[in-house]
Amino acid sequence: MTQETTHLVYFGSAIFTLGMIGFLTRRSMILMFLSLELMLAGVSINLVAFSKQHHNYQGQVLAIIILTVAACEAAIALALIVSLSRRKSTLDVQAWSELNEIPMRSAEVPVVMVDQVRHYPKLTPAGLEPSLTPSPVELGYENWNELGENTDTPMEKTQNA
């Protein structure tokens, strides 16, 4: 690499690193997206440097494409920020940290007693008019879809207790 390209790569990587540190440390969503834009700017400086070293236009075309992507990203990011801050009325990104996975069956799920009568759909023979079977809610199982497939497990648990 030539001396000039080397210095430009140093400069671009410095800008990129500053943006990355900003993205990792900032908690305000707006400033996180600004850090992302700074990273993109560092990359486009790098591309232009290599475009000048190789005396062709490929790097500059790529820099223009990056500019387009950055504009798209800014539009989407601002829409997201507006809709997110409207819901929780804060810009803190840690307000959304509970969007991770929860354990499959936590201990707080209450064990419900049910009788073993289950509702199964009846198949109508061919050629006959189907009779409308009552739904589980009409039969009195209010929260039938929270029980899961196997109703034996809560029964066993309650019997053991």
Partner: peptide
């Protein structure tokens, strides 16, 4: 200023990663 502007998200790890990258 709010708390999330003042208090940063683990700055030590971020600076170490950035310095190593640079």
């Amino acid at each position: 200023l709010t708390t999330y502007d003042v208090k940063l998200n683990n700055p030590a790890i971020a600076t170490v990663i950035g310095a190593i990258l640079l």
